[in-house]
Nucleic acid binder design. Structure first.
Lengths: 314, 314
DNA sequence: TAAACTTGCGTAAGTGCTTACGTAAATTAT
DNA sequence: ATAATTTACGTAAGCACTTACGCAAGTTTA
């Protein structure tokens, strides 16, 4: 079994390149057949110069879709062989205008024939083929323009890693992790407050014994996130103490914790979920919005850092 | 209008390359995301070494479809970074066995995840697309394997040039060209004989006045080929004095002359065409066979160089 | 009107492969 | 058993581009 088959379609890049090489490979011989002693890479420049009698380096580059540096090199080589002449522009002395010499024009004539024949050969190959390579390339160019391969892979990574995250119920051995995960982000953006210590040091009493719930997110055997449901009254719970380790970000762990909390709240008979946050925590606010929370104006919060309140009706 | 559009499908090579670059462009960043500090081009070697714990340079090259030189370079770079170790083979001291170090194995683990995600992303892109790029590439690989682009272009060239060849009737001003074209090839392979001079110096008397016919092939204003029909008796004509200038070969001029002669012979009421040739003139014999002539054994020829006789029943 | 920026170009160096070539070891032929 | 060939590998250089950088000439801004 070949490498391509083993690796699968991931090798599409190499394969495209291989086919391109296959097509380009004969190019050098081709020019020989037509009796023009030029390098294949000169062709686009030749073509460009037959369209406009005179053109500047950069303009040619733009036209043929290459860099000015590449054109500059090609022109130097062509000039050495006497196919083109260079001439500084009078008005703008930076510009280097290039034009075909008589020898260049003669070669261009022959290249024109070659262009016809190559086009005909390729068109014939296209008509022989069942799958439309041209359209397929166009489609992929479009697809990758819309969303780069990098982004596509990142999405797959997130999905795969997300599926490896387990959301489990809080247990006494998580007490330390519960506090640490929260303290980490609070200290980064704000400072620890009185109410923080109450909840983080005594989750059993303040949250669970009070009819609430705590979830922990586990990734590869390590606790990397947490989120709590705190009972406010019979039908209303607060979503609080959500924290995800920075080392585990980009795995949609927040979303998973959020969904788990919403589900649990419903089970516990809640009809409303409430939360407090701060607008400088943009990714968090975005997450809450995605979960369906809406901004409200409620009673003042005991937390100093709170500057936004949100609610979700279940 | 872009260069690609102007040039048409001839640019398929560049376009393939462009797409390949587009796909490969993100590769470097990709590795960074997965926390492995390697060059993208190392990937196939990594992959190969995870399959077989230890392998030689050339064997890896064959597996991943690259040259041993390429692998040798990659391995040198990888070894410098401590991803692989090299070990001379005991039995065959030429061989250099390469294997992953612990660091290499750790990186390979991460690369495995990356492989999964990239494959998934690409497969998803394939499922989003309407035209099957993969099959299209496969088809083109096959098409070009069957008949290289070079040969395809040569065929188109022949066709185009053939269509520019005119077959005209002999006129007195062709006398010189008629002799020259024939003398050229006869002297190259054999020597001029008595009968040659008779026909070539006096085509009007020996061929035309005798009820035969002569065709001349003209390409770009120049006489580049000729062929004569010599009347043997009422119903039988000899196809003779066929000559094509070496400078005009590869344009199917022989075929065009042959067809013109066959058509004319029919018009002149012939039922049989006869010819004499020599088996060292392989392209000529092939042409005659293609025109429908078959080998016969007839009466001895007046030409020394003749060692084969052929006939075509009209 | 000087300073800051932009544009056009050339040159150098890098990229990821390849071909070409040289050397040593192993195998086969004589 | 020596010579000729093949194999395995490393190194260099080439290919067709690119990016990076520097310089000079133009243009805009303060």
């Amino acid at each position: 079994m070949s490498f391509y088959d083993k690796v699968g379609k991931m090798a599409i890049g190499s394969r495209l390149r291989g086919l391109s090489d296959m097509i380009t490979a004969d190019a050098a011989q081709l020019y020989h057949i037509y009796g023009v002693d030029i390098h294949p890479r000169w062709w686009p420049v030749f073509y460009s110069l037959t369209q406009a009698t005179e053109n500047s380096i950069t303009a040619i580059g733009i036209e043929i879709g290459q860099t000015h540096a590449s054109v500059s090199q090609i022109v130097r080589e062509m000039a050495k062989q006497g196919f083109v002449t260079e001439r500084k522009n009078k008005h703008d002395k930076r510009k280097n205008f290039v034009s075909l010499t008589e020898k260049g024009k003669a070669a261009a004539m022959k290249l024109n024939d070659q262009h016809k024949d190559v086009s005909a050969a390729i068109n014939r190959a296209f008509s022989e083929s069942q799958y439309d390579l041209w359209k397929a390339i166009e489609e992929w160019e479009y697809l990758l323009e819309q969303k780069s391969l990098l982004r596509r892979v990142q999405e797959e990574k997130k999905k795969r890693e997300g599926s490896m995250v387990q959301i489990i119920d809080y247990a006494p051995e998580h007490k330390c992790a519960f506090k640490q995960l929260n303290e980490e982000w609070i200290r980064q953006y704000f400072k620890m407050e009185e109410s923080d210590y109450k909840a983080l040091d005594h989750p059993d009493e303040y949250i669970i014994a009070n009819g609430g719930h705590i979830f922990m997110a586990v990734y590869q055997g390590e606790v990397v996130g947490t989120c709590a449901l705190i009972k406010m009254n019979g039908k209303k719970f607060e979503l609080a103490k959500m924290a995800v380790s920075p080392r585990a970000q980009g795995k949609s762990i927040g979303t998973l914790l959020g969904h788990a909390c919403i589900k649990k709240a419903k089970e516990l008979g809640a009809n409303t979920l409430y939360l407090e946050s701060n607008t400088i925590l943009k990714p968090a606010i975005n997450l809450y919005l995605k979960l369906g929370f809406e901004k409200i104006t409620g009673p003042p919060s005991p937390y100093e850092r709170s500057n936004i309140q949100m609610e979700l009706t279940l």
